[in-house]
Design a protein around this nucleic acid. Structure first.
Lengths: 373, 373
DNA sequence: GTTCTCCAGGCAACCGGTTTCCTAAGTTTC
DNA sequence: GAAACTTAGGAAACCGGTTGCCTGGAGAAC
């Protein structure tokens, strides 16, 4: 069947003038050349007259020709796709990771298969097999926790990069946020503000991030010859725990001028509880959160200084490492991605004259004891 | 080169005993049959001896054979992939949608290409072309707002389903949450609790969801012969606005016994502001949010009754409609997906004896006027 | 005018599967 | 024992591109 040149349909992507996507032989026929010539014309290969190239190109345009990528895959061996497996559910942390990774990969003309394994090892292995069967060029493994996990497979035929989480195998390529550095930046900042009596409220003790951030905090304070006020308070990643922990701190004497929290949610709970007993943030107590989750950090009263793990950048880094590995330049090992301190009012230097910080601290302290039992 | 049967490597998915993924001719050679026969054996086609099938199958197992899906695509015309384009940034609303869709599609053995167009029409068209070039079997278009948008393309060669957002072309297949029904459920609930003086605080007037939910609220109240307390308060989707709007309501006389909010964030701001002036939730003011965003609804004091758009279910529905369309049973038009009322303490019926609601209302009312100017 | 050179473009193999068609056996039947 | 029928499995076309090789014709050199 000759191509119906009469019914022109330019601009409809992928369909052209036929009922099905145009193939290169449609293009060749319309341009009056052979299939091989058409291919060369479109890819700038071979030796062809400029006029022929033009004719082929315009035929391709007219038909809305897009090469069938299955065919390309078949003889290049490359699919220009990568798989992204989130080992646990897609959530708040995965989004910026995915966005960043997708950004870098898209720039490299790669498409991304999304696989949500939902904490289910069976789903995970199913997805792995699927991705390998689709001959992806590489795989990014990500998750909700930074704790190291067992490698997703051994001796896989494609490169794998772990993002946010890391692999227990030190030879695997992992990109993880510098939580230690992040915690240290938070403490540095509080110390620079002149705060010396710093408390730490964070998530469950068995949670890797909570443990890492807490011990980095203790260590950084020790370097300045300081101790944490009380011990690190481990609880859960919730506002309610932040409120509860504040009660514990106040009940224990309440002699603290800063709280560094393991998450913005906890910090917000702390802020609310402090406000309820009349302690002012930042004047009486400076407050630093972790995650820089805009919804929490901005809605907090006052807006919250926080540590940003720069997950989007981390995702981009992971994607770049994967692209490099695909191009034969693997960079095995754990790569540390820096955190950033984001300053907001909860640690702003007060410039209100008329009452010194210490006076107000003493006053609100008494009040808080009265209110809080 | 004969297959190296000596170095067995069973269990390594996709690699087998060779340095590259095994092909069906590797399997055929190892089993001592032709490729055609091997194909038949593995797919249960043709007429073969059971013993031959077994031999081929075990050869395939030994080599870790996984059919190259590019090859499958090439002669079936089906890729068993779909594209998911989020027109604006991937965010809180997209996640459950994606999760739900990915769930249904995975069950249909389809893989999902993730495309984040970031509110950029050029990126969107780029992704569309990419997806068509990859010969996806279908496309899901989603986004952050429920407002109808221009079709992503006309006369596309594959079915498209719009999820959450809808297409302005009524013949396109869209799945949208029943925001009108959701708002009505909220009002129904408040009315059933005996509340009659209901206020509405919501997002920007030009935001489709805000407008739709507000007018549904007004309409439902009118059906019961009631008016909104004051006009609907349009502002922004933030806690700060919720607090501010509460001030407006209180300043205007404060004679309201319920607030229905256009989002959980707003509702939380309202809750905080009410608490600050001593009005009790739910005793004095019942509070209903929208979105049922767990972080907000659960952290709210008290936990927030809210309308859940069941986005994960909506995503599944969209995927199911797409699968149906791919299988030749399209269901054009707008499909409405119901919302669900989730009950929590912010509208719980108080059972505290000793003081009637009305008494307390009067008391706290006086107090609130005192505090709030 | 003949041979050489060069170039435009066609032909066909190939990637890795599936499927149709066909043939060489073995089995049954009379 | 020969003809008819069944059956296992092989050969080859095909999907849609790319690419190496080859050829026919035009122009140049002699």
């Amino acid at each position: 069947m000759p191509p119906r040149k009469t019914k022109e349909n330019v601009g409809t992507p992928g369909r052209g003038t036929l009922g099905r996507p145009a193939t290169i032989s449609d293009v060749a026929r319309l341009a009056g050349v052979s299939v091989g010539t058409a291919s060369k014309a479109l890819n700038g290969r071979g030796s062809l007259r400029e006029e022929t190239r033009r004719r082929v190109r315009s035929a391709a345009d007219e038909l809305g020709f897009q090469p069938n990528s299955a065919a390309l895959t078949l003889n290049s061996g490359r699919t220009y796709t990568v798989g992204m497996i989130t080992t646990d559910t897609i959530g708040r942390f995965s989004i910026p990771l995915m966005t960043g990774a997708e950004d870098s990969l898209g720039a490299g003309r790669m498409s991304v298969f999304l696989c949500d394994a939902r904490d289910d090892p069976i789903r995970e292995q199913y997805y792995l097999r699927t991705l390998l069967s689709r001959r992806v060029d590489g795989i990014i493994v990500t998750g909700r926790r930074t704790q190291a996990r067992a490698p997703i497979g051994v001796d896989l035929p494609v490169p794998v990069v772990y993002a946010f989480i890391s692999s227990t195998d030190p030879n695997d390529c992992s990109v993880v946020p510098d939580e230690v550095g992040g915690a240290r930046k938070a403490v540095d900042h509080l110390l620079a503000l002149g705060r010396r009596r710093i408390a730490h409220v964070t998530g469950p003790e068995h949670h890797h991030s909570a443990a890492v951030r807490a011990s980095a905090t203790v260590e950084r304070l020790a370097e300045s010859g300081l101790d944490l006020v009380g011990a690190a308070l481990f609880g859960e990643w919730s506002e309610a725990w932040g409120r509860q922990a504040t009660g514990i701190l106040l009940g224990a004497g309440g002699e603290f001028d800063a709280v560094f929290c393991g998450s913005d949610q906890i910090a917000r709970g702390v802020a609310d509880a402090l406000r309820a007993v009349g302690r002012r943030v930042p004047d009486d107590v400076a407050l630093v959160g972790f995650d820089n989750w805009d919804v929490m950090a901005l809605a907090c009263q006052p807006p919250l200084t926080s540590i940003d793990m720069e997950l989007e950048g981390l995702g981009r880094t992971a994607a770049d490492l994967l692209l490099a590995a695909i191009n034969g330049e693997p960079a095995p090992g754990r790569h540390i991605s820096p955190c950033r301190l984001v300053l907001r009012e909860s640690t702003a230097v007060s410039v209100r004259p008329g009452s010194t910080r210490v006076e107000r601290l003493a006053a609100s302290d008494a009040e808080s004891r009265r209110i809080h039992r």
